[in-house]
């Protein structure tokens, strides 16, 4: 089977449609002519070393960074002409923690509800549902800064989807988190995807790739491979994603990688 054919998705309209998307910073090409599609309800993983272009790609898709060339459709809107509409329809959580430490759980919920255009009533309702789901009743009036990291992470994720965005961007959400918390966090992501949300997640933890429906392995601004984890492992004859990642990085810039290998 061909890996390339997996770039497009069958069935209903794709949530994300990327065509020849490119970002250059001066002479450096951070994202090189990428094309792919993501279906509704999919967990789409972006794997790669630091500097492979994952974050740049996500920033472009969120409307934070303007593409140098190419086009994309995100959540039903044109990335170039309607970035403001896209911003209303997506949720975003980055590796840097994005809640306000000096506000309480509830104040953070109301605030983010407010900037996403929820009315006070709606924000309170959505907040209560969220607090109930996470079992946060006792903590809702505590400052975010006083909570353990695992909780912060869960709350940040829940706040990012407070306005039911349909498409959620997670930029290395689990970096610097202990294995147990990471595991719990992924359970939350899986559960959310089960409710019909589409999720794009970047990571450099290879084991996390196994949770994704499809994975794009990025090497130096290019997508080296794109398919489901099982298909990728079968196709490249490797036992796990870690080995696959090694194999792909070596294939593309072999000499450099070989020289560091013992």
């Amino acid at each position: 089977m061909s890996v390339d054919r997996q770039n497009s998705v069958a069935g209903s309209d794709p949530v994300v449609q990327v065509r020849n998307l490119t970002k250059r910073f001066g002479h450096f090409t951070a994202v090189n002519n990428l094309s792919f599609e993501i279906a509704k309800g999919e967990i789409f993983g972006l794997l790669g070393a630091n500097g492979a272009g994952k974050t740049t790609l996500i920033k472009m898709l969120c409307g934070l960074s303007r593409p140098t060339a190419g086009m994309a459709n995100v959540a039903g809107y044109n990335l170039i002409t309607q970035p403001e509409m896209i911003k209303r329809r997506i949720g975003y959580m980055s590796q840097k923690f994005s809640l306000y430490e000096d506000l309480t759980v509830q104040e953070n919920i109301r605030f983010f509800g407010g900037i996403y255009g929820l009315s006070k009533r709606e924000a309170i309702d959505a907040g209560n549902i969220m607090i109930g789901r996470l079992g946060l009743e006792k903590m809702k009036n505590r400052l975010i800064g006083s909570l353990p990291l695992g909780w912060k992470q869960k709350i940040a994720f829940s706040v990012a989807i407070l306005h039911h965005p349909g498409l959620i961007f997670l930029d290395e959400p689990t970096s610097g988190v202990d294995p147990v918390t990471r595991r719990q966090f992924w359970e939350m992501i899986l559960e959310t995807a089960g409710r019909g949300y589409t999720i794009i997640v970047t990571t450099h933890y290879m084991d996390e790739a196994e949770y994704c429906n499809r994975v794009a392995v990025m090497v130096e601004g290019n997508i080296a491979a794109l398919d489901s984890p099982e298909n990728l492992q079968r196709h490249y004859h490797v036992a796990n994603m870690e080995d696959l990642f090694w194999k792909l990085t070596r294939e593309i810039n072999g000499s450099v990688t070989k020289s560091i290998q013992p």
Binding site: K87, R88, M93, S94, K96, F97, S98, L99, Y116, G117
Partner: peptide, 13 residues
Amino acid sequence: MGTMEAMLVSPLH
């Protein structure tokens, strides 16, 4: 703190 990023991806102008 990284919250500016969260503000910039939000619909806030």
